[in-house]
Amino acid sequence: MASHSTASAVPAPAVSGRRKRPPSERGFLFTALAPPFFLLICFYVYPTVFNVENSLTDLSLFGLRDGGEWIGLENYVELMTSPDFRRVVWNTVVWLTVVGVSVRIVLGLALAFLLNSATLKRWRLSTISRILLIVPWATPPVVAIIVWRWLLDPRVGAVNAALISLGIIDQPIAFLATAGWVWPAVITIITWNTLPLVTLTFMASLQSLPHELIEAAEIDGASKWQVMRYVYIPHLKPAIVIMVLMSTFWTFNNFIYIWLTTGAGPGTYTNVMATEIYIKAFIEGRLGYSSAAGVVMATIMTIFGLIYLRVIAERELKEEGEA
């Protein structure tokens, strides 16, 4: 009898296995979730739908009041068949993202190991190095770009002056206007400004590595390379994956570094998707076409986003399993 009454006091599980929420709890959840959902609809869903709608029209900057005429998939067909756009995608994916992110990750790892090394601590350079590392990160991109443009200037730039005085070159190089140099120069500027975050993330991960693990590996006769390969890298792997994905997001979308450094030039040599969208929309006035380019760009980013979410989900599942 007692057991029967106890059983009746606890709500029986629903047939589907889900617990049925009382109406008051549902109301609270709805009230709590409504504002963010409303904001998401206003500032994300509506602009996205509006942009897709525009991409199917010939909307022009000179016809904003009248709106564009429906032209179906014409903008997308033009995009996909344009050799210029293929070049833009190549620049964005290969130069800006693959090369840019790779350089940042490799240098970030190297710097993290250096700043975490016993040698630096022994020389009491650890703290000052970390403070110096923060400086580029604290510099706003606009300021960083102006400073670097000045440094790389062929007439008065310190880099050319140094290279000439060292006898490495005899004529100044227009780093930001020469085909062979412009991409390395742009990657250098982006890396300088964004490297600290990557380095600090790897450093934090390194510092969470128990020292006993390294000692145990060394006692077992592991070489330095084997310690790196079997202890450090597996430990750093989650941080590396997250930084690769996050850096890819930040870099792929980037507009400011390219636009302020080279104006997408010389010619169209450094034109990437973000600058192409700006040029088509606000210089050539083709808002419909640039909206289509924006949709393509967003689609590529969505794929990256899904990969990112999958990685995060797998990690959480693994952690739950371990717990």
């Binding site: 010619g267 169209t268 050539e284």
Partner: peptide, 22 residues
């Protein structure tokens, strides 16, 4: 054809020639 369109197109075409890209 809007002048800014031609302005940009001519400038970028010339730039491509000057750097030897095209």
């Amino acid at each position: 054809v809007a002048i800014p369109f031609m302005w940009n197109a001519v400038g970028r075409a010339a730039g491509s020639v000057f750097i030897g890209e095209k």
